[in-house]
């Protein structure tokens, strides 16, 4: 009976994952491996193709779900928004990193909302102290977003805009400092993470485990969080045994990734703080400001 309960929990979290996250790993891998026929993504590999890509995406209908605002947009990650317009004539190249960064921010804010909905679907989460729910999201959400980037990436680049665009790693590296430093650590992490070959149902449980971390600073009532996490950890361990019977120590390897993840988030937040100081034109999305203020 206990195993049956754990399997039911796995199914529940997988369903919530499918409900709230528009671009699954299965879809992303199909796009990356060219199995989508005529719907190959548009490739952005230099400034010219970036400009074309912006126009391309603005002409296309972004696939939307009920909970997503219908905005045509360029985005990073699982879909999203392009708040800024194409620059007019001069300064286009100077502004491009900032404009791109703004679109990343808008998409990230939308993704935070998706992760929040997913968190609320974890059994017991909404019964936790509301301040603790906030703390778990504040500390967990960037970790979750970085894990969710992995399926969209390969060693050569990343899918953006719901998988409609592929942006090359070399292009991201060619942006001016410090923008060029933002994605490279995520590529390095993702390429290694992808060798674990998790599928979407494994990912759903792993994301819930990350969210339910009882060691986040400032938690008021740790015990119920740890109890919830323990149950999800059991479900994850069973899931990996059943889904990857030949992958030895996968559970342990996956848990080790959580340590790497914290370092990546710390470095990411420091980069954003640096950007805030050095880029006069940069404004940070209020939701991201809330999350990153006094984070690490």
């Amino acid at each position: 009976p206990e195993a049956a309960d754990l399997r039911a929990l796995s199914r529940h979290l997988y369903e919530a994952y499918l409900k709230y996250f528009p671009l699954t790993k299965a879809k992303a891998r199909a796009i990356l491996s060219g199995k989508t026929g005529d719907n190959a993504p548009f490739v952005i590999h230099d400034m010219k193709s970036l400009m074309e890509g912006e126009q391309f995406i603005n002409c296309k209908q972004i696939p939307t779900q009920e909970h997503q605002p219908q905005t045509s947009a360029l985005s990073v990650g699982h879909g999203g928004l392009m708040g800024a317009h194409l620059g007019s004539e001069c300064n286009i190249l100077d502004a491009v990193e900032l404009r791109f960064f703004h679109s990343c921010q808008s998409r990230s804010a939308e993704a935070v909302r998706e992760v929040t909905e997913f968190a609320k679907s974890i059994p017991g989460f909404i019964n936790l102290d509301l301040n603790d729910q906030v703390t778990l999201l504040k500390y967990g959400v960037i970790e979750v977003l970085i894990i969710m980037m992995a399926p969209l990436m390969n060693k050569d680049g990343t899918l953006i805009a719901y998988g409609q665009i592929f942006m090359t790693r070399e292009f991201l590296k060619s942006l001016r400092k410090p923008f060029c430093q933002m994605m490279e650590p995520k590529f390095e992490f993702s390429v290694k993470f992808n060798t674990l070959e998790l599928d979407d149902s494994d990912m759903a449980l792993f994301l819930a485990v990350i969210i339910l971390s009882g060691d986040r600073p400032g938690l008021l009532n740790v015990k119920p969080i740890e109890q919830l996490q323990e149950t999800v950890l059991h479900a994850l361990e069973l899931q990996l045994k059943l889904n990857h019977p030949d992958s030895l120590q996968l559970f342990a390897k996956l848990l080790q990734k959580m340590t790497d993840l914290r370092q990546i988030v710390t470095d990411h937040v420091h980069l954003i703080q640096l950007l805030k100081k050095t880029e006069v034109d940069m404004c940070l999305h209020p939701l991201l400001q809330e999350i990153m203020k006094d984070l690490y």
Binding site: I126, L137, K138
Partner: peptide, 20 residues
């Protein structure tokens, strides 16, 4: 609460679209 008002709002509102 004031420091994290958008997160609070996201947590307390159900699935209706939230003005971010």
């Amino acid at each position: 609460k004031e420091k994290h008002k958008i997160l609070h709002r996201l947590l307390q509102n159900s699935t209706s679209p939230v003005e971010l």
